[in-house]
Amino acid sequence: MATPDQPDAGAGAENPVPPAAPLLATVPPGRDSWQGLRALTDARIALGRAGGSLRTESLLEFRLAHAGARDAVHTPFDLAGLEASLHAAGLETERLASRVTDKQTYLLRPDLGRKLAPASIDRLEAARGLWGQRDLAILISDGLAADAAHHHAAETVTELARILREAGWTLYPLFLVPYARVKLQDAVGGLLGARHSVILLGERPGLSAHDSLGAYLTFQPGETRTDADRNCVSNIRAGGLPPSAAAQKLAELLIASRRLGLSGTALREEGGPTKIAPPSPGPDLRGVSGADRQ
């Protein structure tokens, strides 16, 4: 039984090691005696306290992490830079636009981010005949974190295109679309008559990861498709699922989707090659719709 006269911190060092609390050699000043538990989770545990409140260090660390996430949401999409990387990799690109023209509207009006701007509809209709019907339309957007597209999209897409071309797939030019939502792939894919579509876009930044890319694929994209018809590969970033591995996973899913002639929940259940996480973070209300928020 603990007693009130035990010290706040530092007492752990000379005590026996408890089973689930591997102790650090020393507990830093101000931290809790159960510091060792931090090895078991990335959660912000054993922070110590000032009275009952956060210590200065923890308070400012949180602010820094949140500031990074806030900046990530508002970072502008560097289309020219991304085009340069893709062209260097020998990939063709085409710029399109959703009906959103600024970040605030993007955040407030997800419905507009799911639709193509009239000029882009005209462009696709005009080019459709020239391109002919192809297997896959790939879209890249800044989504909620432009740096995700800046850092990981070119590498992911280059590798994905390489694998699929080797497998005999034909691809449309890569569509770069600022301010897109996941469903915009239905508008593009549907207009072109593509057999598959994939959209890669920046995921909602968390406190620890600010440049995480998400990818959503759809078989026979079109207006009637819903999130249940899609498969998702998320957390694409250096410290998560690396771009090359993500490309491999996406390619496997696409190939399985083609073989089975379906995508979404049914693909997950009917033996997609890889067990992938559902797009929503949990079955409760908080998930509302994982794909829809992107």
């Binding site: 603990a2 706040d8 007492a11 752990g12 102790l23 005696s33 159960w34 306290r49 009952g52």
Partner: peptide, 9 residues
């Protein structure tokens, strides 16, 4: 809150 040492149950 009270101080909690590493011997806490």
């Amino acid at each position: 809150l009270l101080p909690v040492g590493a011997k806490h149950p």
